[in-house]
């Protein structure tokens, strides 16, 4: 890791924390959505698989240190054994898979629309499919909720996360038009 990577990862981790402080938007059914998980998608989409995953690891280290960095001011080791821990650990894999697919899928010579679609797909695969798999398995087996119930309680968050995947892809295309940055 170069010093530039180190700075980029630290600053992106700070962005993810800052996005958790942006007030949550209450969705239909009272499910709150925050921008924090969009930050995880962005880490993968903009920085790439390895730096994206490193960014999430830094956020997790901040949580471990007891800092209230997660949305709603949550933090501390309690989160690691709490019911949503699977989603937290899943972020690492989510950022990696999102970044990896972005690297593979995005064809820069294509139109903005095509690129946005490709990046949205990457964000959905990593930030929703992989992430929910981790989160649901944790709920089902560690919190002993059972697979069916774990699936049911996670479902209401999907529409919000789909919207976030699209926004994250749009943001990524615009950012990469403004500054040159490789995915690593």
């Amino acid at each position: 890791m170069t010093t530039r990577d180190l700075g980029l990862v630290a600053l992106m981790a700070a962005v993810i924390v800052a996005l958790g402080a942006v007030p949550a938007i209450p969705l239909a059914g009272g499910v709150p959505i925050t921008l924090q998980s969009m930050g995880v998608m962005l880490a993968g989409l903009v920085l790439g698989p390895r730096r994206g995953a490193a960014t999430v690891l830094v956020v997790i280290a901040l949580v471990a240190l007891g800092l209230p960095v997660l949305s709603g001011g949550r933090g501390g080791l309690a989160v690691f054994v709490g019911p949503t821990a699977g989603f937290l650990f899943g972020w690492v894999l989510a950022a990696f898979v999102t970044g990896f697919l972005a690297q593979v899928l995005e064809a820069t010579e294509k139109s903005t629309l095509v690129r946005t679609a490709q990046l949205t797909l990457a964000a959905i695969a990593g930030g929703i499919v992989v992430l929910y798999l981790c989160g649901i398995l944790w709920l089902a087996f560690f919190v002993k909720m059972g697979l069916a119930k774990a699936f049911m309680v996670s479902l209401p968050f999907v529409p919000g996360d789909l919207a976030k995947a699209i926004v994250a892809a749009l943001v990524t295309v615009k950012v990469r038009q403004a500054v040159a940055i490789e995915r690593r």
Partner: peptide, 24 residues
Amino acid sequence: IVALVVPLMVRVIVRSEALADAID
């Protein structure tokens, strides 16, 4: 959200360069 996050990300990427220089 796009109008907030795009400039935020661009600044972060630009800042990381200066930050790396200062750390070195």
